[in-house]
Amino acid sequence: MKEFKILAVVVFFSLVTYWLVEPLAHSVLHKHVDSNHFTYADLPALEKTGDVANGKELVMGAGACTGCHSLEVAGISASMDPVTAASSYGVNPPDLSVVGAIYDDKFLAALIKDPASALKVSHKFDPDSGKMHPMTQFYGAGGDMDQEVADMVAYLKSIAPKAEDVTPAVAFENACGRCHSVRYERWTQMGEKPMFKFKKDEYRFDANVLEYQEHLTKYMGKLPPDLSMYYRSRNVHFLETFIEDPQSHMEGTAMPRVGVNAESAEKVIEYLADSADTLRDDRERIGMYVMIFMLVFTVFAYLWKREIWKDLH
């Protein structure tokens, strides 16, 4: 039938145009980066089995982790408030309560031994130029260093919640939230912004955040962007591969590789989706209703047309 031939021509040229300006153009415009599925193949595997009790002593020991990091689950709170910490280190050091659940084991071990290489920021912190990464590397407590590192990782994992109990917000706040704000979720680099009764309290809070951001800007070279709309301004594949290794997309960026495991990366992306595409489930659901309505409408429209045109042909 003639009408179908015409329709085929219209559809063909529309689809060709679509394919050219969307899939083809975007594959050319954007750098292609393959995902390694958070395997961190460049980092050595953990060969020793860690001892939790020994790990606890090493983590809590004098001059070790808790000198700078808080460990809320063990009752050790931060020695400095976030602003002072940021002024000392550039960024507030994370609490270690959930790190065992969020970060990859190999990554944690590599981080303890050599932070700048594990984080892939050696281009920024080069000991020869006198710039040291603010996190001091672990020089060993006198025994077998690999064993000691394995013990610390084992301890951190033993106190952390199960990976499936980590919420998207906790994953995001730990892995990203000390550098990035998400204003649509009221998240600031210093935590969630509370609702204030008095304006002066809100100003005080905002002033602290601004001060924190100033230190952070000095440390990173530029204030890390607010991520409220990143789920829509970047695609999921970009977010995955960028979180896995920022250098793969932006060579020389000051953003460290954060070393999250695959489950936590998924949660971080879910958090970003909740911020930027909050009502996506409604869209799916209502889309189905609208489609059903339109299909029924089409059937009736066809029946009406047939009824009217039977006198015309």
Binding site: M294, F297, T298, A301, Y302, W304, K305, E307, I308, W309
Partner: peptide, 8 residues
């Protein structure tokens, strides 16, 4: 009637 079918 034909228009509305195409519109649908």
């Amino acid at each position: 009637s034909k228009d509305m079918f195409v519109v649908a």
